[in-house]
């Protein structure tokens, strides 16, 4: 037992992520027991997918200091590709996901090429334009997306075995945990350090021998690959999509999730996704009186993002840390008096 605990402590934070995943995977069990309701499980699944996308966006924004307002379009691209592969071409789940992620990553590289010339919030604008073009594609290419009628997909199938809803939920959790592992590893690898250096000062980073051009492209392609993966997973859980699901507002919300949760933090991204996508429908709308107000979710998220950007730039994930510090301080002061 003690050995196990030691091992747990040594392999943090990976073990933390694993425990988090195992706990989250119990949610379908709670539905079977009648504690959670069915639609709440769907909402949680959405939060999991958005958490994956937020992790990718955090690598781009938090570590790389590059901005993207086109994330939703890349999610949509992932959703449509997997619908096309599994539906029209009747591929299995795994090859479809792999090819989808590869394609979105390559498209991310193309956007990254753009990023090598355009800077800062100009870049955000450029990604916005790319997203608008993609949305036009979603609407017009009926053979590929089925336009406003909507595209359909099934629960994931492995060879001849088709998963049901609960198993798919567990699969999403598995992907989330893998995404957290990978993000943490990337952030603490040479790539992550190179991205951080680039964010701090490009001139200094270039002087240290970091290839700015390469790492901008790498950052973009990682983040769009996450977005593509997220879109594809959501497609296989919700099993339906249409062009209006991938609008600018969603990109904005994902951006908000990164800022609110905490830049440069893996757990912050998950927390941010939960606060932005989970808290309004799961908690706020169940409150008496204010739960019935129109547009409450938007105001909650918007005010939160303004407050966090103005007064708490590190993000909500550090609240726990700061509270602990306060307690220690208070205890030290108190201790001295006594």
């Amino acid at each position: 037992m003690r050995k196990l605990l030691d091992r747990y402590k040594r392999s943090r934070p990976y073990s933390d992520y694993l425990v988090f995943g195992i706990l989250l995977a119990c949610a379908p069990l709670l539905v079977e027991l009648g504690v959670l309701r069915f639609f709440q499980l769907t909402l949680i699944a959405g939060v999991i997918v958005y958490a994956i996308v937020t992790l990718g966006l955090n690598l781009l924004m938090g570590y790389g200091g590059l901005f993207s307002l086109g994330t939703a379009a890349f999610m949509g691209l992932g959703a449509y590709f997997t619908a096309f592969f599994t539906g029209n071409l009747s591929w299995g789940f795994l090859p479809s996901i792999i090819v989808t992620v590869a394609i979105t990553a390559i498209l991310g590289m193309v956007v990254g090429l753009l990023a090598s010339r355009v800077e800062g919030f100009f870049l955000a604008m450029a990604t916005l334009a790319v997203a608008e073009i993609l949305r036009q594609v979603f609407i017009e290419w009926t053979w590929f997306t089925n336009s406003f009628v909507g595209a359909r997909a099934d629960f994931p199938t492995f060879f001849s075995f088709t998963m049901n809803r609960n198993q798919t939920f567990v699969l999403l959790v598995v992907f989330l945990v893998i995404a957290m592992f990978v993000t943490h590893s990337i952030a603490n690898s040479y790539t992550g350090r190179a991205l951080s250096a680039m964010r701090g000062s490009e001139a200094a980073a270039a002087a240290m021998g970091i290839n700015i051009f390469k790492y901008r492209i790498v950052a973009f392609s990682i983040s769009t690959a996450y977005a593509g993966l997220g879109g594809a997973l959501l497609m296989h859980f919700i099993r339906f999509t249409e062009p209006n699901a991938w609008i600018f507002t969603l990109s904005l919300m994902l951006f908000a999730a990164v800022v609110i949760g905490g830049v440069r933090s893996v757990s912050g991204s998950v927390l941010g996704a939960f606060v932005v996508f989970g808290v309004p429908p799961l908690i706020l709308q169940n409150l008496p009186v204010i739960g019935d107000v129109n547009g409450l979710a938007f105001i909650f998220t918007g005010v939160l993002i303004i407050i966090v950007a103005m007064y708490y730039p590190a993000g909500l994930v550090y609240v726990w840390h700061d509270l602990k510090k306060l307690v220690y301080k208070a205890r030290a002061k108190w201790g001295r008096k006594v």
Binding site: G120, F121, T249, L252, M253, F255, A256, V259, V293, N294, G295, L296, A297, F298, I299, F300, T301, G302, V303, L304, I305, I306, A309, M310, P313
Partner: peptide, 28 residues
């Protein structure tokens, strides 16, 4: 007025927050 001292990136994040607030205020 309260964001004058902030970095311009934070200011723009604040305006993105305003977008979301107004999208909520309008239906309200």
């Amino acid at each position: 007025k309260r964001t004058i001292k902030l970095h311009s990136v934070s200011k723009q994040i604040v305006t993105l927050g305003l977008v979301i607030v107004f999208l909520g205020l309008a239906p309200m």
